[in-house]
């Protein structure tokens, strides 16, 4: 170390600087070898596909190289907006994610508040553990459960018919107009417990002395929840809501692919499933890349502005 520092001091100019960099690299050679491995990987698997966006400006077909393909500029970007079902897809994307951002957002907050009111710690822990079990199963499992329970021979129709509420089995799965409700309920069932964890953690962080002071001032339970707990978790709620706005274009993907049928297409097709259908299934790679790229640029802009708003309003951010 000493000697290196000394020789480094003596050498000046370009040659000296290169020498110093060389020495530093030599000292860090093991770290750089490991790092090189990571850099090569990220270059191929993460930045490779980013480079691949260039396909969207060409008439690309698999098997041809890029130089053989015809440059078409923004043709596919423009084409997307001239298609008849484009507004349908944008509507579905926005409606589904807005439902998630309202119902799917408020429900976990309410659940966390109610759980906080439970007196038995053991019971609370048990309910909590049960509530986030569905988060850990795949969407295929959820879809299978839904098909079984809501199908015409499923238990829901069975019970409803025995109780005399309906006389014919409801066709919940095949009908388009039920789809948004079905999807929102499925998202809620799968996610409510897991999403509430962060609020429960935030509630645990509220200063206990405030409750004591509240009791002195004569606050009841509802008053404490309203005047102490809720303001206490407000920054967390606000932060997560603002960040949720950043994902407005991600309306889910697996759910739609599994639960959607050709009959519900008018209601389930969102941008991501559209990209999949056109790109992978029909082989229109350039067009689908263009649609996907537009959506992720818009998504990134949303995330960045949401982050900025969050920083201003709550002092917290994710980037």
């Amino acid at each position: 170390m000493e000697i290196q520092a000394k020789t480094g001091m003596k050498q000046t100019g370009f040659k000296g600087r290169m020498n110093r960099i060389g020495k530093r690299l030599y000292k860090e050679k093991e770290l750089w070898i490991i790092n090189l491995f990571a850099l090569v990987w990220v270059g191929i698997f993460c930045y490779g596909p980013m480079y691949g966006i260039i396909y969207s400006f060409y008439d690309y077909f698999p098997g041809k190289s890029l130089s053989e393909s015809k440059f078409v500029g923004l043709k596919y970007y423009v084409e997307f907006f001239t298609l008849p079902d484009v507004w349908l897809i944008i509507r579905n994307t926005l409606v589904i994610s807005s439902l998630g951002l309202t119902i799917g957002f408020i429900a976990p907050v309410i659940l966390a508040l109610l759980m906080n009111e439970l007196r038995s710690i053991k019971f609370k822990r048990l309910v909590q553990t049960i509530s986030y079990l569905p988060h850990f199963v795949s969407w295929i499992v959820v879809a299978s459960i839904i098909f079984t329970m809501l199908g015409s021979e499923g238990i829901i129709n069975d019970v409803l018919m025995k109780m005399g509420i309906i006389h014919e089995p409801l066709k919940i799965l095949g009908e388009g107009e039920y789809f948004w409700a079905l999807l929102t309920s499925a998202n809620l069932w799968k996610g409510i417990g897991f999403s509430s964890i962060i609020y429960i953690a935030a509630i645990a962080g509220v200063d206990q002395e405030l409750y004591q002071a509240g009791a002195v001032d004569g606050l009841g339970r509802f008053g404490m929840a309203w005047h102490i707990t809720l303001p206490g978790i407000r920054p967390t709620v606000l932060l997560l809501f603002i960040l949720g706005i950043g994902t407005l274009l991600n309306a889910g993907f697996e759910q739609q692919l599994l639960l959607g049928t050709p009959a519900t297409r008018e209601y389930h097709e969102v941008i991501e499933t559209y990209v999949y259908r056109y790109g992978i299934q029909q082989g229109r790679y350039s067009f689908a890349t263009a649609v996907g790229f537009m959506s992720s640029v818009l998504g990134l802009m949303l995330v960045l502005s949401a982050n900025k708003i969050s920083k201003k309003m709550t002092g917290m951010s994710i980037i």
Binding site: V42, M50, G52, I280, A288, T289, F293, V303, I319
Partner: peptide
């Protein structure tokens, strides 16, 4: 890479 990726189709073509 947390905030931006090439997307489904370019990844698919890369894997291919």
């Amino acid at each position: 890479t947390l905030y931006f990726s090439g997307g489904l189709i370019p990844t698919y073509l890369l894997i291919n």
